[in-house]
Nucleic acid binder design. Structure first.
Length: 581
RNA sequence: GCCCACGUAGCUCAGUUGGAUAGAGCAGCGGACUUCUAAUCCGCAGGUCACAGGUUCGAAUCCUGUCGUGGGUACCA
């Protein structure tokens, strides 16, 4: 069934063609949702744009279109207002029919994209040998949300966790571990590694000789030297174990199946260099093989080199990134590769995207997209740190969120058994952290604020989860199974019901807009407005105590649609719901 | 220096890709609970959309410049 937008656009095109000739049939009707109920439900803004082309006044054009507009099944009223807006009021029966079809759809009316595109989503991608910290949060959950939305749309999504298991940090760590004799011990934990890495980092910054030896270790590792290899494997196992623990408490859909570590591309690196050399793009700079990309300059104003192969023979991240592009586009045949990585790396992405294009790897029109995001700030507007000024561990953030959520639940719902309260605290606490992050425009920095994210008012996860809970409570109390409502007629009588209906029917458009823009916060805003519309409806319209069975069933169906939309929407953000809270 | 983002109410943020009188939440003031869960709802107040030009029927949104904040500026990622 065509959606409302398409139906209206069709009617408007017919009217324009009938008023001014068929050559105008493809004019964009510029259909928008009305900004206020007093302007009807939708407005068409094409009359102003046609004024020049037709040499007539916008209002006269709008009047002419309005005259030819078919009223009845879809539109019950059309009025011209302002400079030439055509305000449209929808037939409630059309809304009801649309809702009926949404109710019967297990996808809530969201069409599957056909044919599906193959999309690689590269996200989380932490550097190993360090504990996961707050800086890993955004890539992990924004990427997860994007992957879920694209998958729901029916795209062929391939998740890649491009973990840093191969770079310079391992040189530092290896050199330090071998020198201190740690390499001969058997027991290790990620916290130990964290400390050892910090020690190594300090030495690297202050001791050029150490730095030199550490760089040599990277070359050893990449060329398969046995001792380096053996220690490295121990480090990797421990790091991945820790990473998976964090993913699990975060509720992220990444498993070992999605690991595509930097080391995976090792035996492709020399081929990458050869291909770029073959394209005549490699230059020599002090022994390093570099590429120059137009438009990038260093502090001295000279063209900025990007090192594909370092002067010591080792490969840096540009080589790995280029090998990954080639693998994803040429081997996996991806149509789109999405990189969910901090905005600060924007220049790096622009550079190697351009190189990949110039080498000719994007022949089939494959699209590379850097989905950048801002920094999480503390209350002082500086990057979020612990009170002592240290790195905030991701596991600690989640623990505290659950802890804080638990306290609120103990206060608000003391009647629930403590075991259930613990489970709810986990869903609410983790959901609050994730939603708070996702609900901000990803390109901007945001200030981390416990009170705000766990607040029950405003655009927060608990507010949405509570709307869901209230609906489930209605069904429990009324002892109604949602499936039993199938086929019942939905009647939209109250303004609050009509507003809710219009809101529900926007879901497909919102999903599309998130998929196009790769901005999950658009879904958050939508869900918040939906929950808000529901709460207004809830105050105004008794459901179980409605004054007729037909009205009760109609409202129950509306409630169920809201619940399913909230659950689905939150699910696409990687956030769970509970039955009570 | 050069390049890239961002600047909306006291605070934290939206703003449907250029549409009507710029919207929420918090904080402030005033209301609504023997409840389908008040973890909610209703009302009041709060704005030179950083500033100045430009594009056009129409700009918070696009362009140019200025100011401010943050980031990037090879062989860390």
């Amino acid at each position: 069934m065509p959606d409302i937008q398409s139906i209206l656009e069709g009617l408007l095109s017919e009217a324009v063609a009938s008023a001014f000739g068929s050559e105008f049939a493809d004019a964009d009707p510029i259909l928008r949702q009305a900004t206020s109920p007093r302007f009807g439900d939708y407005q068409a803004n094409l009359a102003m744009g046609l004024a020049k082309r037709l040499g007539q006044k916008p209002r006269d054009i709008a009047d002419a279109i309005k005259e030819k507009l078919t009223l009845g099944d879809a539109i019950t009223d059309a009025e011209v207002a302002g400079p030439g807006f055509i305000n449209l009021t929808l037939n409630p029966d059309l809304l009801a029919t649309q809702l009926g079809s949404m109710f019967r759809s297990d996808r809530l009316g969201v069409a599957k994209s056909d044919p599906p595109a193959k999309v690689v989503v590269d996200y989380a991608s932490p550097n190993l040998a360090k504990e996961m910290h707050i800086g890993h949060l955004r890539s992990t959950i924004i990427g997860d949300a994007i992957a879920r939305v694209l998958e729901f749309q029916g795209q062929d999504v391939i998740r890649h966790n491009h973990i840093g298991d191969w770079g310079t940090q391992f040189g530092l760590l290896l050199e330090h571990l071998i020198e201190t004799g740690w390499a001969d011990s058997t027991d290790s934990s990620i916290s130990d590694l964290n400390v050892l890495y910090q020690q190594a980092k300090v030495r690297d910054d202050n001791d050029p000789a150490f730095a030199e030896r550490a760089r040599k270790r990277v070359v050893d590792l990449q060329s398969g030297e046995p001792q380096a290899r053996k220690i490295w494997e121990m480090l990797i196992v421990e790091s991945i174990r820790h990473m998976n623990q964090v993913f699990s408490s975060l509720g992220v859909q990444l498993t070992d199946d999605h690991l595509k570590p930097e080391s995976f591309y090792n035996d492709r690196l020399s081929g990458v260099v050869e291909a770029i050399e073959g394209a005549g793009m490699i230059r020599d700079l002090k022994g390093a093989k570099v590429v120059y990309v137009d438009g990038f300059f260093n502090k001295e104003g000279e063209p900025l080199p990007m090192a594909i192969q370092k002067s010591d023979g080792g490969f840096g991240y540009p080589a790995t990134d280029l090998a990954a592009v080639h693998y994803r586009v040429a081997d996996l045949k991806a149509d789109r590769v999405v990189y969910v990585v901090d905005s600060r790396q924007k220049d790096h992405f622009r550079q190697f995207f351009k190189v990949a294009e110039d080498v000719g790897w994007l022949k089939d029109g494959a699209e590379l997209v850097h989905v950048g995001f801002g920094t999480i700030m503390g209350a002082d507007r500086k990057p979020f740190k612990t009170r002592e000024g240290g790195t905030v561990k991701l596991a600690d953030v989640l623990d505290e969120a659950v802890d804080r959520a638990g306290k609120v639940i103990a206060e608000k719902a003391p009647e629930l058994p403590s075991e259930e309260r613990d489970a709810i605290a986990r869903v609410v606490g983790v959901g609050a952290v994730k939603y708070f992050d996702l609900s901000n425009d990803r390109i901007k920095d945001y200030v981390f604020d416990w009170d705000r994210m766990l607040a029950l008012e405003g655009n927060t996860a608990p507010y949405l989860q509570n709307a869901y809970v209230r609906i489930r409570s209605i069904f429990r109390k009324g002892e109604v199974e949602p499936s039993s409502l199938s086929g019942r007629e939905i009647k939209l009588e109250q303004a609050a019901e009509r507003a809710l209906a219009l809101q529900l029917l926007q879901l497909p458009r919102i999903i599309q807009s998130v998929a196009d823009s790769l901005e999950p916060h658009r879904l958050c805003t939508y869900l918040y407005e939906l929950a808000s519309s529901f709460h207004k409806f809830y105050e105004k319209c008794p459901v179980l105590a409605a004054d007729s069975d037909a009205r009760r069933d109609s409202r129950l169906a509306l409630c169920d649609l809201v619940a399913r939309t909230l659950k689905q929407g939150l699910g696409l953000l990687g956030i769970d719901t509970v039955e009570r809270m």
